[in-house]
Write a protein that binds this DNA or RNA. Structure first.
Lengths: 227, 227
DNA sequence: AGCGGTCGTTAGGGATGCGTCAAGATCGGT
DNA sequence: ACCGATCTTGACGCATCCCTAACGACCGCT
């Protein structure tokens, strides 16, 4: 299992240097040069680690961290040229996991990356199959079986929504997180989509689609999978 | 819930200085001057965080980390006078979560401690579930269960208020803070809102809404969640 | 006793959010 | 180029929630 890293920096040279190093060490590298691009890439690719430079042209670095943290728990290591202590504290308190001041040594960065990935490692080792009274969901095989045992066909988008809700079953998932993870951060207000797809999921899964029992709406906040 | 920190250093002066700082910041501090004492204290007290100096008289620092990691996942932050890069990498790869080189700034250490503790808070965080005799509040899942086990439905505004009060449970929260955080700084005088929503929360949570036991009013000051 | 201030309670109108349906638009495979 | 599956987009009715205002109760103060 290769670790996927998203590297964010506005300087193309640094980007290239880091990419070469990390690729040589066995990481799968994606890059972004702006804050918005970083958010888009995070939502689309779900990297296992983010290396973030604070000096971006479009967004403040802490704003990127805050936005990311509103729906993701991916480890974030900040790389910054600023030696100011206040920047460090701000970044860490906003949600960054580590902070390195440029120039840094490559071996140290690699060690801190290993530490960050190790820490975040596999809290998702939960049961891969979730069974209810009316259907069962196999997260590993990406299959849904009805009570009679026949397979329920889900479209890719339907599956994406169901997977997020089931992975955090019982917990409330904000519509912002759903929209960010599936359509990208720019669609945060298109709650239309969620209404449509939740209706479709209910029609396929719920015994009484009009009175949902598993796919619960929490008005104004989000949705919840109740098993 | 106060965070318990184990500070390990062979220099009694440094130990004392750190203890004073951390205690002032609300941490519960235990100290140890040797590697063996540190391991003993970890096993006995299960601290939430370990601050570890590498230059110990009896054991090598990395040995302490390895021993600790053989049975515990407690966050470890290494404090060391050694600037050698190899030490850093060794410590991090053995299982340390962070590494600060002396001398470091106290605000930075505190920020990194907050980051480390935040990360270690697993989804099944104990602090995230507040149980009383009449209901239980799951802050992570945004769920309230009544004593009979059925879910209590709260509106977004009700949740926002309850969340703030419960996060600082036991402490007095001023009406100005509640109004500022939920409706924005311009609504600081609309204490009407609070009266209405506190009444709704009491009707949903309190066994005797007319005689509140959990959602206490401190006249002229603010509100308090008493568990 | 009278009075001003703060708090609790209630109820209703307006705004917002949700479920539903259906019609284009887009994509992918034959 | 066609066709089915899937994804977007808009519109409508309906339920719910937020805000607001009004009234009464309970203090401390003059």
């Amino acid at each position: 299992m290769t670790t996927r890293v998203l590297v964010v920096d506005d300087d193309a040279h640094i980007l290239r240097a880091i990419r070469i190093h990390l690729t040589a060490c066995g990481y799968a590298v994606r890059t972004a040069q702006t804050g918005r691009a970083a958010l888009r890439a995070s939502a689309a690719e779900h990297p296992d680690l983010v290396l973030l430079d604070l000096g971006l042209p479009d967004l403040d670095g802490t704003a990127v961290i805050a936005e990311l943290r509103s729906w993701s728990t991916v480890p974030i290591i900040v790389l910054s040229a600023r030696t100011d202590g206040a920047d460090k504290i701000n970044a860490l308190d906003t949600g960054a996991d580590d902070y390195l001041t440029k120039p840094f040594s490559m071996p140290e960065l690699l060690a801190r990356m290993r530490a960050a990935v190790r820490r975040s490692g596999s809290p998702t080792d939960r049961d891969m199959v979730v069974a209810t009274m009316d259907f069962s969901i196999d997260l590993a095989a990406k299959k849904v079986l009805s009570r009679t045992g026949e397979q329920v066909h889900l479209t890719p988008t339907e599956w994406a929504i169901l997977e997020i809700l089931v992975r955090d079953r019982g917990a409330l998932v904000s519509q912002r997180r759903l929209l960010s993870e599936i359509w990208g951060p720019t669609y945060r207000t298109e709650t239309n989509y969620l209404r449509v797809y939740l209706a479709q999921l209910r029609r396929k899964l719920e015994p009484e689609p009009a009175r949902p029992r598993y796919l619960i709406t929490e008005p104004g906040m989000g949705y919840r999978f109740q098993d």
